[in-house]
């Protein structure tokens, strides 16, 4: 009876693994699935397999997946230039790369273990905002840098706080946007 219940629960957790919206939750469901599989092995009289399944499936693979999830978070920053004439020239890109604000954002991403990827685009700010590939949109106009982030992102809040605490928020303005509203 217990065994049949565990097999049914395995099916439930397999379904949850596929259909959960958070990858982190998926990994936890998969660990529970492996643990139930180990119990089923015990009921079938294979304790060696049960130990191997519990150690590898429930421990090693879960931790490896969590490490991979933590390591692999790419944070895509779009530098929108809005079709300026000098946009995307080498000197513009070099200047933007050596910009102090971009440097700070990059260092912030490194400290949070994101991998910053800076994309230079000729799109306008609105087009860049509506593109779901970009997590942060930077634009540079009349000597002032505008940083836009999605309104449901906590990263933009922390970023704004960091600029305020460092006292480096002189030439910079922050904005939020919602993707549905655009």
């Amino acid at each position: 009876m217990l065994e049949i219940g565990m097999v049914l629960l395995m099916g439930v957790f397999a379904w949850l693994t596929i259909h959960s919206h958070l990858l982190r939750l998926s990994v936890v469901y998969m660990a529970i699935f492996s643990l139930l599989a180990a119990f089923v092995f015990v009921f079938h009289g294979a304790p060696e397999l049960a130990i191997a399944e519990a150690v590898i499936g429930s421990g090693l693979v879960t931790l490896l997946y969590l490490v991979a999830l933590q390591r692999y978070r790419v944070y895509t920053i779009c530098v929108a230039s809005d079709r300026h004439s000098e946009a995307l020239s080498d000197s513009y890109i070099k200047g933007m790369e050596n910009n102090e604000i971009v440097h700070r954002i990059r260092r912030f991403c490194m400290s949070r273990e994101f991998e910053p990827e800076i994309v230079f685009s000729s799109k306008s700010v609105k087009e860049a905002m509506s593109d779901s590939r970009y997590d942060l949109v930077i634009t540079h106009e009349n000597g002032e840098t505008h940083v836009y982030g999605p309104s449901n992102s906590y990263v933009i809040v922390e970023l704004e706080l960091m600029f305020q605490m460092d006292g480096a928020n002189s030439g910079i303005r922050f904005g939020r946007y919602t993707r549905e509203g655009l």
Partner: peptide, 10 residues
């Protein structure tokens, strides 16, 4: 129950 492979994985 146990053995080289299980202990090594631990």
């Amino acid at each position: 129950p146990g053995g080289g492979f299980q202990g090594g994985s631990t």
